[in-house]
Nucleic acid binder design. Structure first.
Lengths: 339, 339
DNA sequence: TTGTAGGCGTTATCAT
DNA sequence: ATGATAACGCCTACAA
């Protein structure tokens, strides 16, 4: 595989055309003082004429600073996509780049990390990484000196920073809203092994207990996808027993529930109120209009990028950091309990 | 921002520990012949002990071959995500890496491309790029020597390779299926400015004409998202006039139509048959079960990666390449016309 | 099979 | 303000 037939112009070419030394070209392109206005203009116009762009590899190699932050994610979780998009904006603002590395059925987190490491990223952010805590610890140990930040997952690892929205508090918002509407039969559609399923489940249980509804709890096994929610709703309808309100592990699951309910004549919110979690963009669509717990992807991203910069400046990892859940977004999927 | 507190080990460290020269370490890590078995083992164990991994930047810089293929995409289109995942597998197979560069509301295609160019990717694949043909041409001209491949978009540019599934043929499949079921009032929900909306629309029109239904055509303005489909369906219901069959620009739009229909008592397929395009994973969910035109993301990805390798070997661009649409996947959203 | 020398494109350092 | 020189980590010669 032969690469790059005709090589792109280098600093040397620009210097020759502008009639200056290579150092001056470097000075101009780094935007540091030390070049007169006239030379700066000459260099810039020579570069434009040649279509010159500094080689990031050489730059990073020599300057020992890549200004690249690695990101691992699955690319299928809407909330994670939102977070990553917001991270891009923060990166832009602070003059660094994001190197994206996907995990798929065929590409392990380890492969994703190794690619990032080989490129000598300055730090790595893992968004919703799956796998056991010990597997992850082993993975992070591949390069103990590269600051590691984990987003949207609980981890008891002192060597990394972990950022999460407080799920337990979020569930309290959801349950509290339904209780305020007069509901007592509030069931929870569980996220099984999905990211942060455990804290959300226990958030539901403790919220119910706090409202003295501890004996009315019911956790329905499900999953994290629309298909999971649909399957659970179908099972519910087959059983013939419905609560007056449902809290779903996340918006996707809630959508699945809504889909099946509407196809089986169960009216939302007249018959059953439904609450989600995440407030993904789709939740605002007129025909879904889902009451849900906001997670503020942009705030999470902002806090993450602050931590990254602190770590890059040499600060030690601070362990787990919990962000308050956004407000509950009340839409038309919830209503007072039918009397 | 200080980077990398304690520098990662280099070839020099490995060579010293193994008691060999640096070139031997290089030989071992490139996997080329020229090192004895014992040396190889010594080098490998020294590297393992130090946690050494070759520096991709230095490697790429010196060898003048990055083995990196750049990809631009939006990360929100399920079909594009599928294609990219499949591209990852092909890349793995052929020993190169994918450098992902997202475009978002805040990140233009130009920014995405520039990042890839700065990293000196060997080639760039654009998946479903938006923007006018002339804007794209200008963008591709930034680095005329970097092979450019465009996927899922029509382009009349001789300087790039373009790969697409034949939309017109796909629409013929969809319309033909409905005609076979006895439908004559077949309306089309249009994709507006979305990727390949034009060929699909004209595919619909010519298919209808081919079945002598040219006077029964109706193109409903919509868009490319679930929300667009929902809005169009709502307008249809408000108007009180429904066809017996609908072909949607893509699956997302079809889902939006299904959502609204089920919430307004329009039964699918008893009252209206609905056909999508793409066969995204969600189309197979039991409660949606959408009849749709398969696009075979993996075949498209495979063809793309073949073209990339050809271009990297010096082959000239071949212009537009049309792949046959996959079969029509018949599910329960279509049925014979009610008599 | 092994080692030495030079350079990829850039930045850092030190002259002028 | 400008330029020469060395070095970043690696690979490609070429020599031993």
């Amino acid at each position: 595989m032969a690469d790059m037939p005709h090589r792109p112009p280098t600093m040397r070419d620009v210097a020759a055309l502008a009639g200056v030394s290579r150092s001056l070209v470097s000075t101009v392109f780094r935007g540091v003082p030390g070049a007169s206005e006239t030379t700066r203009a000459r260099v810039l116009s020579a570069a434009a004429e040649l279509g010159y762009r500094p080689d990031a590899r050489a730059r990073s190699l020599r300057s020992r600073t890549s200004r690249q932050i690695g990101i691992t994610l699955t690319a299928v979780h809407p909330f994670h996509v939102e977070v990553t998009e917001a991270l891009h904006e923060d990166a832009d603002l602070h003059g660094y780049q994001l190197a994206l590395s996907w995990t798929t059925k065929a590409r392990s987190l380890r492969q994703a990390v190794e690619m990032l490491l080989d490129q000598r990223c300055s730090a790595i952010i893992h968004i919703g990484p799956t796998g056991s805590e010990s597997d992850l610890a082993r993975l992070f140990d591949l390069a103990p000196d590269v600051p590691t930040i984990v987003v949207d997952r609980y981890l008891e690892l002192a060597s990394v920073d972990t950022l999460r929205v407080d799920d337990t508090a979020g569930l309290m918002l959801a349950v509290g809203h339904l209780v305020g509407l007069g509901h007592t039969d509030i069931w929870y559609v569980d996220g099984a092994e999905y990211v942060s399923a455990t804290p959300r489940r226990s958030g539901y249980l403790s919220a119910m207990a706090a409202f003295d509804l501890g004996q009315a709890t019911r956790v329905l096994p499900s999953g994290g996808t629309r298909a999971d929610g649909a399957a659970t709703a179908l099972a519910l309808i087959d059983d013939g027993a419905l609560p007056t309100a449902i809290v779903a592990y996340n918006d996707q699951v809630a959508f699945g529930v809504l889909d099946v309910f509407s196809r089986h004549g169960v009216r939302v919110p007249q018959d059953v109120s439904v609450v989600g979690f995440d407030n993904v963009p789709e939740a605002a669509l007129p025909h879904l209009d889902l009451t849900t717990v906001e997670q503020h992807a942009d705030r999470l991203a902002f806090a993450t990028s602050e931590v990254v910069r602190a770590r890059l400046d040499g600060a030690p990892p601070r362990g787990l950091q919990l962000l308050p859940p956004g407000p509950l977004i009340v839409r038309s999927s919830t209503a007072p309990r039918r009397t």
